[in-house]
Design a protein around this nucleic acid. Structure first.
Length: 419
DNA sequence: CACTGTTTATCGGAGG
DNA sequence: CCTCCGATAAACAGTG
């Protein structure tokens, strides 16, 4: 069938020189309705990219949004996402009964409130938004990073996305299939089995400890390079050519992601082994330690990040900034029930103090512009944000920009048909 | 049975 | 032009 969605594709002019540290994040997450902190928000960042350079093609309505801000020079820093996610405050935790509003969870309670209190019309009016400028991978990442335990079930991921972006309340079957595909296909997502005390369907998904900041280039539609887990790569290649084992594909041969493309041929990978995750999945076995394992996972991930060879520095920063961001921009989250589990950060640390902080990279005015832009242009998504931070949501509503410009992007090509 | 998860296949766009 | 990345479709297996 043909594509109904114009895919937003992207990308950047990649300014990133291969390895810039996650610059970062100082933004605030207003998109979620809060405008906090200093200025830029993850969304803003993304928006910016869109109007700027990251999004080269914005077939959707986005381009029609008012005047974009003077693009502040490319896709900025990567942690916008983290911050954004952090801000969104989405939360169901592994233990806390999944998503959709666990009455017991403070967050869901708030969330529920926000949902119900908000005039229904508000929702409906902007229902058909254009597709958000984020790839599924980034959306998933946001969802996971936003969870204090850094683990979410598939259903929670779905919910996070839908809560955040009305666009995804439609054609669910379609994009959810894509989400599942992304989770399975991308090594950056690791499945963690449930523990006996947390019965339910499906496993938890986490980010691979070495995946680092996949969006450090600030473009959430396309990573510069797909993350590959060496172990899995090896396994894959072994299955590809069992005989020669891993020598089949030279080590540095990245991504043999069957790219048969326009030329069809090329050996395809054989049905791969299921569940070949290394460490994390080792808990697979039996329950005993699994529980501890599960709970330790998040920390494990973080811990490992700091020791991973190449990206250690970046990852560490990413975490720190994420935490700092939450703390600084959204202290309320910390007092929040879930936040208790949040990784604590070095006291006194502020993202902006980081050499690569976005606040240092951006001229003051740009930041201001972005903020405005963010608020006014992307606001459409704001109001719908589920954030459990009701006050944040309220703030968003006050900003009001919500309705107004949401007109900016009509669902142009949102080919919403099917379904 | 509905969900979850894996895999294969294609296509289109970005970028080198 | 070629490679890489992401989106989408779809078949299929496992599971609560």
């Amino acid at each position: 069938m043909q594509k109904l969605y114009p895919e937003t594709s992207i990308n950047s002019s990649s300014m990133t020189g291969g390895n810039m540290s996650p610059m970062a994040t100082t933004y605030s997450m207003n998109s979620m309705g809060m405008t906090v902190g200093s200025g830029m928000s993850g969304m803003g960042a993304a928006m910016n990219s869109m109007s700027g350079q990251c999004l080269t093609s914005a077939p959707l309505g986005y381009s029609s949004m008012g005047s974009p801000i003077p693009n502040m020079g490319s896709c900025m820093g990567g942690n916008g996402m983290s911050s954004m996610a952090a801000m969104t405050g989405y939360s169901s935790v592994p233990g806390s009964r999944e998503v959709l509003g666990d009455p017991g969870s403070p967050n869901s309670a708030a969330l529920q409130r926000v949902r119900t209190e908000k005039p229904a019309a508000t929702y409906r009016r902007n229902y058909t938004h254009a597709k958000p400028p984020y790839s599924y991978i980034s959306l998933i990442t946001m969802a996971i990073q936003n969870n204090p335990h850094k683990m979410l079930t598939l259903a929670e991921i779905y919910q996070f996305i839908m809560d955040l972006f009305p666009f995804y309340r439609q054609n669910q079957q379609r994009w959810q299939n894509s989400i599942r595909h992304s989770l399975s296909f991308n090594d950056c997502f690791v499945k963690v089995p449930r523990t006996p005390d947390k019965p339910g369907k499906g496993s938890f998904w986490t980010l691979h400890p070495d995946s680092g900041n996949m969006f450090e280039n600030g473009c959430y539609l396309r990573r510069q390079k797909r993350f590959k887990d060496e172990k899995k790569e090896v396994i894959r290649s072994m299955h590809k050519s069992p005989v020669h084992g891993m020598d089949a594909t030279s080590p540095d041969k990245k991504d043999h992601h069957e790219d048969h493309h326009h030329h069809h041929h090329r050996e395809h990978k054989l049905p791969g082994p299921h569940d070949t995750h290394g460490m994390l999945n080792s808990a697979h076995g039996k329950d005993t330690d699994a529980l501890a394992m599960l709970h330790a996972t998040a920390d494990l991930c973080l811990a490992q990040q700091s020791q991973s060879h190449h990206g250690a520095h970046h990852q560490q920063l990413q975490q720190e900034e994420l935490s700092a961001m939450v703390n600084r921009c959204h202290p309320s989250l910390l007092s929040d029930y879930h936040s208790m589990h949040l990784k604590q950060e070095p006291p006194g640390y502020t993202p902006s103090s980081h050499p690569f902080s976005i606040t240092r990279l951006l001229p003051a005015e740009s930041k201001a512009d972005i903020k405005m832009y963010d608020m006014s242009q992307y606001a459409g998504y704001n109001g719908l944000s589920p954030l459990q931070n009701s006050h944040a949501a309220a703030a968003a509503l006050e900003q009001n920009s919500y309705y107004h410009q949401s007109l900016g992007y009509h669902h142009a090509s949102t080919g919403t048909t099917s379904l």
